[in-house]
């Protein structure tokens, strides 16, 4: 168990981060904080991919146009490509989310979900 923790501690950290993100999304009444929670959650997934690809002693997967390529130790490039793409997607989502939050704030004058519920119930 200890050994597992020692060698796989990044996974543990990643999942703690995932939990934090979900908790923040659910528990926080502030809409912006909710979005931060979502971003945190996504970032944890990115880290998960990265740590999955890591090989001890491997370098970045930039393969030089060089001699014996078979002996080169590089991390798997596939997850890194994926993460690059996912980061872009994540940014787009955050942008759309924030735009919506701005619109809600302009209409209702609040960022808190509980206040928002009251305001909408009154209407």
């Amino acid at each position: 168990m200890i050994e597992l923790l020692a060698s796989h501690y990044t996974y543990v950290l990643v999942f703690v981060l995932l939990g934090l993100g979900i908790y923040m999304t659910i528990a926080s009444e502030n809409l912006v904080k909710k979005l931060i929670g979502v971003s945190l959650f996504q970032t944890a997934i990115f880290l998960f991919f990265i740590s999955m690809a890591y090989i001890e002693g491997g370098s970045a997967p930039i393969v030089p146009h060089a001699e014996n390529p078979g002996e080169l130790m590089v991390a798997s490039p596939l997850p890194q490509v994926i993460v690059l793409t996912a980061i872009v997607v994540g940014i787009a989502l955050t942008a759309v989310g924030l735009a919506l939050v701005i619109r809600i704030y302009a209409e209702y004058g609040t960022l808190r979900e509980d206040t928002l519920r009251e305001v909408r119930a009154d209407e």
Binding site: L31, G97, L100, V101, R103, I104, E107, Y108, L116, R120
Partner: peptide, 8 residues
């Protein structure tokens, strides 16, 4: 504004 809330 309801649609913005629903969308969020």
């Amino acid at each position: 504004p309801e649609s913005a809330v629903a969308a969020l």
